[in-house]
Each structure stands twice: as C-alpha cells, then as structure tokens.
Computed example of a mutant assay.
Amino acid sequence: MDQIAGDGGRTSLFSGGFSVSEAFEGSEAIAAARGLARSFLTDAQAVHGLPVSGRAMGMVQLVVSELVTNARKYAPGPCLLTMQVEGGVVEVTVWDSSTALPAVLGPDPGRVGQHGLEIVMAVCQSFKVQRELVGKRITAAVVLVDDPGDDVAGRRA
C-alpha cells in the first residue's frame, strides 16, 4: 500500500465541521481507506463529541469501500478520499483520474457483481458525480445518527 498523504491530512473547518483526506494507491488501498473511515468517525465521537450510530459507522465504511474499489479498478494512478463532517452528515468524496463517468445499473437480482453504486445510492442521503478538468469526483452523503422516528441512518426520506 502506498498512502500518498502522510498523516491523513486531518483538518478542522471554521464552521464547526472537520475533514480528513488521504491518497491511496496499490492493492491494500481499500482496507486502508475503510480503516481511515473508521478512525475518522471514531474521532468524530471521541474528540468532537458527535453522535455516530453503529449503522452509520458501517454504512460509511461500506460507501468508502465501494467508491475506492471502483476508483482503483477503473482509473489509473492514485485516488483521493476525503471525508467531511458538517451538520450531522458525513460527505465521502473520492477523486480519480478517469474522466469516464460511472455506469449506474438498475437493480437486477440475477446480475453477478457490479452492484456497488446501486448499494451506495441505496444507503446514502445524496449522491453526485462531477467531471473535473482531470478525472472525476464522486460524493455520497450519509447521516450520522438514526432518526428518532426509526428511519435508519443514511436512508433517503
């Protein structure tokens, strides 16, 4: 694994939010990215006092895993993972060098594989893809706590 940004690039933001960024390249990038997500959300609880449900912890790691997997699979070179918490939501953004936009396939229980973006879109509050001058940026947002009305974290209303 080659982690390109040394200490995880942790940053506090003026508006009460905070973020972390790290670049990944190599075969162990996906596990390292999940570990960064777990560490980041653990810090959100322990250091910043934010509530993070167990479901949100799992959903963010799943989203990170799927987005980094796609970046490593379909784009040459490193990918950049950024997570930012603000307003009770964590935004997970993955940049990669490919300008090809992802194909979001419809649900098909008979299809083997290629369900990653389908899963991400099902568990996120929002999902967007931006083409950049170099590459693209995919951002998915997951709420940090389950709704008192029993709506689970990350689900769309």
Rank of each mutant, 00 (worst) to 15 (best):
A75T: 02
Q84E: 12
A157Y: 08
S15I: 00
V63Y: 01
D147P: 08
M121Q: 15
G88R: 15
L81H: 02
G9K: 02
L41W: 09
A157S: 13
D151A: 14
C124H: 03
L117V: 01
A157L: 13
A33L: 02
V134C: 08
A44G: 05
Q3D: 01
Q61D: 05
S27W: 02
A33G: 03
K128H: 07
D146P: 09
S65M: 14
V112S: 15
T69C: 03
R156N: 11
G58R: 07
C79K: 10
A31L: 12
G116W: 04
T139P: 00
A71W: 09
A56T: 05
K128I: 00
Q114L: 12
R156E: 02
V123F: 10
W95H: 14
P51E: 15
M59H: 09
T11P: 00
L105W: 03
R111L: 06
Q130N: 15
M57N: 11
A23F: 10
D7F: 06
Q130W: 01
G106C: 03
A141I: 03
S21M: 07
A23D: 09
V89T: 15
S39Y: 07
A5K: 12
P107C: 09
A157P: 15
F14C: 02
F14Y: 13
V89F: 12
L117M: 09
L117P: 08
A56D: 04
R155Q: 11
E118F: 10
D150H: 12
L41S: 05
M83D: 02
A29P: 11
L117I: 02
E25H: 11
P102R: 13
S27K: 14
G77F: 05
S97T: 04
D43H: 11
D150V: 09
D147H: 15
G54T: 11
P102H: 13
V134M: 14
G6F: 12
A31V: 10
S15N: 15
K73H: 05
S53P: 00
V123T: 06
V120I: 13
T93H: 04
L133V: 09
G9Y: 02
G8H: 08
A140I: 04
E28R: 15
A71M: 04
A23I: 02
F127E: 01
Q3H: 03
N70K: 11
S21G: 04
Q125T: 15
V120K: 00
